[in-house]
Write a protein that binds this DNA or RNA. Structure first.
Lengths: 184, 184
DNA sequence: TATTATATAGAACGACCTTTCTATTTTTAC
DNA sequence: GTAAAAATAGAAAGGTCGTTCTATATAATA
């Protein structure tokens, strides 16, 4: 197996395990075993566990934005709703059990600034994305709407833990429609 | 210092540290030092760290419901809004940096069922609380409203990480008013 | 005051973690 | 085909964690 595919498999396995059991809940031993690589292969690609975590987060963030870009028609006049719907689809497919970035913030706040920043920035970018949409549409209270929709999506992720991703996303979309309608 | 005050201080320090750094992020050594007790005093009251975690969660849950009870007029015709406002005040005073119960679910899911259940049940009770309010008011879509408001509060907690508790709760109350108004 | 229960400091244990080391084998590239 | 680079298994180092043990001191109770 080539060098790059080893690295890819390592990152893929690490992302899955980190997501399912948390960063602190997964040891390198388990990652190495499930990725079927040697200890030194991991350390050949990443100088430490934390740097591996960083790369996992960066890769997941990239996948998220690719997914969103692919599912949104940018010039629609209901881009807000499309974005919420796309995000909900992402939750169903890839993030139906809590949010990896929120976990990263909680697990590494105060101990690893780089990891914390990557996770925080990702969340902040989603807010900025909505704010840009709001600015495009002009109205003042659309800034508030951007914050409200971000809050809504945060709640949706957390709510999956309680009532499952299907019902949570259903409610999210209904709520988003109400909020958008109310603010226009 | 008497037996019960030792135990109280232990629980108080444990709750604070667990909330700030996570359950996995805090060792017994740190708890013991900050509570100024001996190792065996802890083990005299709790047979293991996990049992201490359980008690911390149970106590925090009790405090939460006491707080809510004290801040809500039950027979108001806008109890939904009062409950949201009370919850937001609780966030400002006691939970402005993420949710301890969500953390417990994430940290112990799959490894400690008792802890996971305590945390899950707490969240479920809040949903049930809103559902009972909805049932009292009779209308069918009030069940949806209960789920929506629970989702809203979950999002508020998570949103504090991003924009701070003041702005997050402001948005939450505005959103709650919109949703309640829309569903009546 | 005598007795019993509880708290104390600190060492020790075993398990697990991340990281490093070693020596051998496989792959890659010229 | 040969030399350099990378991957291998597995042990070992060095640290932290939860838990237990020991032996002494303090407090509560009768």
């Amino acid at each position: 197996m080539s060098r790059s595919t080893k690295k890819d498999k390592l990152l893929e396995v690490a992302e899955r395990l980190f997501y399912e059991h948390g960063f602190r809940g997964v040891g390198l031993k388990q990652i190495i075993q499930e990725a079927d690589i040697a200890t030194m292969t991991l350390y050949n690609h990443f100088p430490s566990k934390n740097k591996l975590v960083e790369e996992v987060l960066r890769q997941r963030e990239e996948r998220y934005w690719s997914y969103l870009d692919a599912h949104i028609e940018k010039d629609s006049d209901s881009t807000f709703i499309l974005a919420v719907e796309a995000h909900c689809r992402w939750l169903k497919e890839e993030s139906y059990k809590g949010d990896m970035f929120l976990r990263a913030i909680e697990d590494y706040a105060g101990t690893d600034n780089e990891i914390e920043n990557i996770a925080r920035n990702h969340k902040y970018k989603l807010l900025q994305y909505f704010q840009q949409l709001a600015q495009r549409d002009g109205k003042d209270n659309q800034q508030d709407l951007a914050n409200q929709l971000t809050l809504l999506l945060e709640g949706t992720t957390s709510m999956t833990t309680l009532i499952g991703v299907e019902k949570a996303t259903e409610y999210a979309i209904v709520m988003a429609r109400t909020l958008v309608q109310q603010s226009s």
